[in-house]
Design a protein around this nucleic acid. Structure first.
Length: 391
DNA sequence: ATGTTC
């Protein structure tokens, strides 16, 4: 027995995890990202890596993948535990992008439980704030996060859309945000001791992880409520709220999702870009796909490349007023270039790949009207203080 | 991605 044991140490792992890429051969998939999938596949305990058509390289681990393992690796979820996309119906009498863009509240400023005690957005908080973490509550964050006012565009599945009590032309708020500093703190606490190694006490990690997932969902509700009130209407319950950075325990296996949304019989909003439609899909992914679907268009360029190439190719004005006629509220010029639609893959190709692999059925598109990322240029600190005073 | 950078 001991002989058998020692012999195995000189052999390759008995089982090498499978890697499946759910994309067509012509889809834009960087070889670096596929290489990362194979690095993940070589980890102890790894069983299967399912790469989504929005796959792109991440920091250490690929983004746009579901990874099933007998061992829990916190770095495969990353720091933004609980990040996800929620969709909230919203009713407005008129939707003129210019007028509405000016009314968005400052979503870089956290809701303070004492100073903002009378803010009506608090009504969406039913129980305790997860982990008691009030820092950054109600803020959208940076990177690819946003709050978007959009209208339902093409309807592919009329029955499904009417079951959601929606119709073409109706307005929705799409909120993409995560757990801000909380998830970052949870990953850092692990990494400082164990690096990219497994969680020594998976249940202890999962308890903190679950807090971050709940916090992210609550934060998306708070963001939607802040915007709804600022636009003169009441908050609603989300019709969709799927988290794409999390680990799910399934039949005793840890299914890590990093930029992959739960796709087993659920509706998912797959984000396009700040200038193209997004797709609401009915997801029906099986085990081969890690029960998952894509979470967005997926980056085609690194942030550095997008900034360098974008400055040569685009003006700030054309990025703020997009091809679909929407406005982008983003006072951070660098972020505006990093998040340019041309820095992303074509969302239609991502959706086609999901459909071709029978992972999802398109239900409807959402067309942006106003995408809020961070307070606008020309909005000085004094302007923002005055705006707060009014709201 | 991030209570981040010099």
């Amino acid at each position: 027995m001991s002989q058998q044991h020692s012999r195995q140490e000189f052999l390759p792992p008995a089982t090498t995890a499978t890697v499946t890429v759910f994309a067509s051969p012509t889809s834009w998939i960087e070889s670096d990202a596929v290489a990362q999938c194979h690095q993940v596949a070589a980890l102890d305990g790894m069983m299967h890596v399912a790469a989504m058509p929005d796959l792109h390289p991440g920091k250490g681990a690929p983004i746009g993948a579901a990874m099933a393992s007998t061992i829990l690796y916190p770095f495969l979820v990353g720091s933004d535990i609980g990040c996800g996309i929620a969709v909230f119906p919203i009713k407005l009498k008129r939707a003129v992008p210019e007028k509405l863009a000016a009314r968005f509240p400052d979503l870089d400023r956290a809701l303070d439980p004492e100073q903002d005690a009378d803010d009506p957005a608090w009504a969406v908080v039913k129980g305790d704030i997860p982990a008691g973490h009030v820092e950054g509550l109600g803020t959208v964050g940076r990177g690819n996060h946003f709050v978007e006012l959009a209208r339902i565009g093409t309807v592919f599945e009329p029955g499904h859309v009417s079951r959601l009590e929606l119709a073409a032309g109706d307005l929705v708020l799409v909120v993409h945000s995560g757990s801000r500093g909380l998830g970052e703190r949870i990953l850092r606490a692990h990494t400082e001791v164990h690096g990219a190694g497994p969680a020594p006490d998976p249940d202890a990690y999962l308890a903190m992880h679950d807090d971050a997932v709940r916090w992210g969902s609550l934060n998306r509700r708070l963001l939607a409520a802040r915007v709804a009130h600022a636009l003169g209407t009441e908050p609603t319950e989300p019709i969709v709220d799927q988290c794409h950075n999390l680990v799910e325990v399934r039949d005793g296996i840890y299914l890590h999702r990093k930029g992959a949304a739960p796709g087993d019989g659920r509706d998912v909003l797959i984000a396009g870009t700040r200038g193209t439609p997004s797709y609401l899909v009915a997801a029906h992914a099986g085990p081969e796909a890690g029960h998952s679907v894509a979470h967005g268009a997926g980056r085609k360029m690194s942030r550095a490349d997008a900034l360098r190439r974008g400055r040569a190719k685009h003006t700030v004005e054309e990025l703020r007023r997009t091809p679909v006629g929407s406005l982008v509220v983003c006072g951070d010029r660098q972020l505006l270039f990093e998040e340019a639609p041309t820095a992303y893959k074509r969302i239609e190709q991502v959706i086609d790949d999901l459909v071709d692999h029978d992972l999802a059925t398109p239900v409807a598109t959402t067309i942006p009207l106003v995408t809020y990322k961070t307070p606008d240029l020309g909005s000085t600190p004094r302007d923002r203080r005055r705006k707060r005073g009014r709201s």
